[in-house]
């Protein structure tokens, strides 16, 4: 069965490097299968550009299964595009109308400088993780699985928080370019578990300090991050991060 095809116009942000002035360029995309993923559509466009000896559109991608966190762009004003709880690679062209103009922009944030076109430098996230430090575990033989009891509710909350793939959509969607949702998810996944408990206070302080140092904004509760997050990380994690932070104000590890 032959699938449907559509024609769209792409208006893409093109920027040569971090310091270059970027601008939008328009591309007419003909006969794209509605079964193509968004990134496959970009592949088709890039193949065409390369045939004409033009610079292909640079975008980050890796697994194309929605689990690695590499891809992402703002599509018509929404991070990762119009389908909720979906990464850009898992978005399909059937979500767009024939003849539609699609505006494609990189994550825009001072802490995520553009590398080229749609690819941004997200190493700021790595440094926030690094600031979180280590967890104290006894080396040697692994303990029995039932030796460390974890209540189901806490295990679930930690697992939900840990499903963050660090794509940066929360920062892209936030009017303040705040990394609160990302940082909060990472704080929460450790704070909820006994393994992360010994350093929970110094960890939250160090990660928040690094978040500020990287130049991210603060949370003013627009909750755009939660709506943009492809992994549906809840803003309740931010509330939890603040609770952890208050704990660190009154007690020490």
């Amino acid at each position: 069965m032959a699938g449907n095809t559509i024609n769209v116009t792409l208006k893409v942000w093109r920027q040569a490097d971090k310091n270059a002035r970027g601008a939008f360029a328009s591309y007419s995309v003909k006969n794209i299968s509605t079964d193509a993923s968004f990134l496959e559509m970009l592949d088709v466009v890039n193949t065409g550009l390369e045939k004409e000896d033009k610079d292909p559109i640079v975008f980050d991608h890796d697994c194309r299964e929605g689990i690695c966190g590499m891809c992402g762009a703002v599509v018509n004003g929404v991070a990762h595009g119009p389908q909720s709880a979906t990464t850009l690679c898992q978005l399909h062209m059937r979500k767009f109308k024939d003849g539609e103009t699609i505006v494609l922009e990189p994550w825009r944030s001072a802490a995520f400088p553009v590398i080229k076109d749609l690819a941004v430098d997200r190493t700021a996230f790595d440094r926030i993780i690094e600031a979180g430090g280590f967890i104290s575990v006894k080396t040697g033989q692994a303990p029995d699985a039932h030796a460390v009891a974890v209540p189901k509710i806490k295990a679930d909350a930690a697992m939900d928080a840990a499903s963050c793939i660090g794509c940066g959509a929360c920062v892209a969607a936030c009017p303040n370019a705040s990394a609160s949702l990302f940082t909060a998810a990472k704080v929460t996944q450790f704070a909820k578990l006994p393994q992360g408990d010994p350093e929970r206070r110094s960890r939250v302080v160090a990660m928040v300090e690094q978040m500020d140092h990287e130049g991210f904004g603060s949370c003013s509760k627009h909750y755009e991050c939660e709506a943009a997050c492809p992994k549906e990380i809840k803003v309740e994690n931010i509330t939890n991060m603040n609770r952890e932070y208050m704990r660190a104000l009154v007690t020490r590890d």
Binding site: G22, F24, N76, G77, G215, H222, E224, A228
Partner: peptide, 18 residues
């Protein structure tokens, strides 16, 4: 927060949150 947003604004901005 204004500084964090950066100098380049989004061409299209659509609210999906609150």
């Amino acid at each position: 927060s204004a500084a964090a947003r950066g100098t380049q604004r989004y061409e299209v901005e659509k609210s999906v949150g609150r």
